[in-house]
């Protein structure tokens, strides 16, 4: 496994309120097919410590790989607990305000791009995808 290039791709963890994370992951897979190294967590019913623990558990299982934590709402508890979970770890970034274009770009570009550049790209992609269409 270790000499397989995709084993070094960053992992993605979608962390949301309610059913959003699961639905986003399922929807993204429905568009691009099988996806490795992407996970989801719903934090609605969990206390902060439990949620932080579950995020760290996934990060620990993939130690040595970069990770992006996708959270649904800037400043919400998923976001706050993601910051707690990433504290003291290198190669982990949080992207808040997850949407489908961002997730699809992550899944399809993460292998080809350098980590920091890819994360910057995701932010641009997310912003570009939010537009008013007025005919």
């Amino acid at each position: 496994m270790s000499n397989h290039p995709s084993a070094r791709e960053p992992i993605g963890i979608i962390i949301s309120h309610g059913d959003l994370a699961g639905a986003l992951l399922k929807t993204a897979k429905g568009i691009i097919g099988r996806v490795e190294g992407c996970f989801m967590l719903s934090g609605s019913e969990l206390s902060s410590d439990v949620l932080v623990g579950r995020i760290r558990e996934i990060l620990d299982r993939h130690e040595g790989r970069n990770a992006v934590l996708f959270v649904d709402y800037f400043g919400g508890s998923m976001c706050i607990n993601s910051v707690r979970a990433m504290e003291g770890r290198k190669g982990v970034k949080i992207v808040s305000g997850i949407n489908l274009p961002v997730l699809l770009d992550f899944m399809t570009k993460r292998e080809a791009m350098e980590f920091e550049e890819m994360v910057d790209h995701l932010i641009v992609r997310g912003r570009e995808s939010i537009r008013v269409i007025d005919v």
Partner: peptide, 10 residues
């Protein structure tokens, strides 16, 4: 609220 400040509150 054991989360203190979060989206439900704000």
């Amino acid at each position: 609220d054991d989360r203190l400040i979060h989206a439900q509150v704000v």
